[in-house]
Simulated scan of single mutants.
Amino acid sequence: MSTPARPTVADLAVGDVVATRTVEVDRATLVRYAGASGDFNPIHWDERFATEVGLPDVIAHGMCTMGCVVDVVVDWIGDPGAILRYGTRFTKPVPVPARGAATVEVTATVGTLDAEAGTARIDLTVTHEGAKVLGRTQVVVRLG
């Protein structure tokens, strides 16, 4: 089975939406992330503690949210090794209900193209219940 070719600069234009996705984050995701990262802060698992410190419920780890949403770009580009740089600002927490999941909407748009370097900056819009939860989320990828 052959791997699809990565997009090239010629395939893209600034403003192109290259991918969208709804990402679901549930309590099991938080448990797995806490175990993998070692981040056992009670705001991520103890509802009582989270509400006592002013949060609406337990919240997703910021880095977990960041990691979940970059997959939309990884799947689009077809190669995790093509990700050259990734950064964001955490703007709002993502409350995760005891039952069900929090849904995070992701839209990936071409922000800039660099033909000489063969790269693109992909800008991610990341929202939960209509509010931006990550800001200035940018992924620089190596194109084909």
Score class of each variant (00 low, 15 high):
residue 25 V to L: 14
residue 109 T to N: 08
residue 64 C to V: 02
residue 68 C to M: 14
residue 90 F to D: 01
residue 90 F to M: 13
residue 67 G to I: 07
residue 74 V to Q: 00
residue 87 G to T: 08
residue 85 R to Y: 13
residue 103 T to N: 04
residue 50 A to G: 01
residue 30 L to S: 02
residue 54 G to H: 07
residue 87 G to I: 08
residue 68 C to Y: 09
residue 13 A to N: 14
residue 27 R to L: 00
residue 91 T to C: 08
residue 60 A to H: 00
residue 129 E to Q: 12
residue 110 V to D: 04
residue 100 G to L: 11
residue 54 G to C: 11
residue 88 T to L: 14
residue 88 T to I: 10
residue 59 I to A: 04
residue 110 V to C: 13
residue 108 A to S: 07
residue 111 G to K: 14
residue 91 T to Q: 11
residue 4 P to E: 09
residue 109 T to G: 04
residue 92 K to T: 14
residue 52 E to N: 08
residue 12 L to K: 03
residue 77 I to E: 00
residue 58 V to E: 01
residue 93 P to H: 02
residue 51 T to R: 15
residue 21 R to D: 03
residue 126 V to F: 00
residue 88 T to E: 00
residue 19 A to H: 10
residue 74 V to A: 09
residue 77 I to C: 10
residue 53 V to L: 02
residue 2 S to A: 15
residue 56 P to V: 04
residue 45 W to N: 06
residue 41 N to S: 08
residue 90 F to T: 06
residue 99 R to K: 12
residue 90 F to P: 02
residue 103 T to M: 03
residue 52 E to D: 15
residue 67 G to Q: 08
residue 117 A to N: 04
residue 104 V to C: 07
residue 129 E to F: 01
residue 51 T to S: 09
residue 45 W to C: 07
residue 130 G to P: 07
residue 130 G to H: 06
residue 39 D to I: 05
residue 108 A to L: 15
residue 77 I to N: 00
residue 26 D to M: 03
residue 35 G to R: 07
residue 7 P to V: 05
residue 72 V to N: 01
residue 14 V to R: 08
residue 114 D to K: 10
residue 20 T to I: 11
residue 62 G to K: 02
residue 96 V to M: 04
residue 126 V to R: 04
residue 62 G to V: 05
residue 16 D to W: 09
residue 73 V to M: 02
residue 124 L to K: 02
residue 134 L to V: 07
residue 8 T to C: 01
residue 50 A to R: 09
residue 119 T to H: 11
residue 87 G to C: 03
residue 34 A to H: 09
residue 28 A to T: 13
residue 101 A to Y: 01
residue 2 S to D: 15
residue 1 M to C: 12
residue 28 A to E: 02
residue 56 P to S: 09
residue 17 V to P: 06
residue 33 Y to V: 06
residue 37 S to Y: 13
residue 2 S to K: 09
residue 91 T to K: 06
residue 93 P to G: 11
residue 16 D to G: 06
residue 73 V to L: 05
residue 115 A to D: 15
residue 86 Y to S: 12
residue 122 I to P: 03
residue 72 V to W: 00
residue 138 Q to S: 13
residue 23 V to T: 02
residue 131 A to Q: 07
residue 141 V to L: 03
residue 56 P to K: 03
residue 118 G to L: 12
residue 115 A to W: 06
residue 6 R to F: 01
residue 20 T to G: 02
residue 135 G to W: 12
residue 126 V to S: 00
residue 76 W to C: 10
residue 142 R to W: 06
residue 114 D to I: 13
residue 97 P to N: 11
residue 113 L to N: 06
residue 10 A to L: 11
residue 122 I to K: 04
residue 103 T to R: 11
residue 57 D to P: 01
residue 142 R to S: 15
residue 60 A to C: 08
residue 139 V to T: 15
residue 32 R to P: 01
residue 118 G to V: 13
residue 102 A to K: 04
residue 89 R to K: 08
residue 85 R to G: 12
residue 48 R to A: 15
residue 10 A to D: 15
residue 47 E to H: 14
residue 135 G to K: 13
residue 47 E to G: 06
residue 82 A to N: 11
residue 144 G to T: 10
residue 123 D to F: 05
residue 57 D to S: 14
residue 84 L to V: 15
residue 81 G to P: 01
residue 53 V to R: 03
residue 45 W to A: 09
residue 113 L to C: 10
residue 63 M to S: 07
residue 111 G to P: 07
residue 79 D to E: 10
